[in-house]
Nucleic acid binder design. Structure first.
Length: 207
DNA sequence: TGAACGATTTCCT
DNA sequence: GGAAATCGTTCAA
């Protein structure tokens, strides 16, 4: 199955395939590329935790478009978060890019994140990832095909993949649609939404 | 027209 | 472990 065909599948199916994929940002300053290590799936209007839950709106319109485009939104009035639109045109599935490992342009990424930030933390967390790649509101709706300002290209098939509940969401928090590279140091620290129900396995350290 | 609330990060104790 | 920072979106009236 081709990369483009994979992206036509629902978010939860595509999400684990995105681990190891490389997202590259090209600006006047240079290039920064990250290998994705943590992602989170949202599955259209039927998913209570998705921005698409209440239907199409000016903000989430990109989600309702074709797969392979970037959906960017502002979180907490100060952080940009980036998603890859997946599923057939109109399905409104998306995968939130939560963390990655910088594989190109460390110095540029550090200049955007701060001089004291460790390499492993440059793109650890959804807002840190967008900062390292200089992704903002102007990138909403961009095509992620190769050669563009932002591009997403497949990486090696990974086998050590972990699954758990999504971070920060208060609805459908029990759905295990967060995927990460097992044991990877660039994966963000897990913090469940304070409004979410108690975890099914509260004492499992991998959760 | 107004108020509540985030798919968060960072700093402080 | 707790709270602040900060603003667009959503929902109620």
């Amino acid at each position: 199955m081709s990369w483009a065909d994979w992206l036509k599948r629902p978010g939860p199916d595509v999400a684990p395939m995105l681990l190891g994929a490389v997202l590259t940002s090209r600006t006047d300053e240079g290039q920064v590329a990250v290998s994705l290590t943590e992602v989170e799936a949202y599955d259209g209007p039927a998913d209570p935790a998705s921005h698409a839950w209440r239907g199409r709106s000016p903000r989430n319109a990109v989600m309702f478009g074709p797969p392979g485009f970037l959906y960017v939104y502002l979180s907490y009035g100060m952080h940009w978060c980036a998603n890859v639109v997946t599923g057939p045109d109109g399905a409104a599935s998306a995968v939130l890019l939560r963390a990655g490992r910088v594989v190109l342009g460390h110095d540029l990424a550090r200049s955007r994140r701060g001089p004291g930030v460790a390499d492993r933390a440059l793109a650890r967390g959804p807002a840190c990832l967008t900062r390292a790649l200089a992704i903002g509101r102007t990138h909403n709706g961009l095509d992620l095909s190769p050669g563009h300002t932002l591009s997403l290209e497949p990486g090696p098939r990974l086998h050590a993949v972990s699954v758990g509940p999504r971070v920060g969401v208060s609805r459908a928090a029990e759905v295990p649609w967060r995927f990460w590279v097992t044991g990877d140091e660039t994966v963000s620290a897990y913090r469940r939404s304070p409004r979410a129900s108690p975890p099914p396995v509260p004492n499992d350290p991998s959760w």
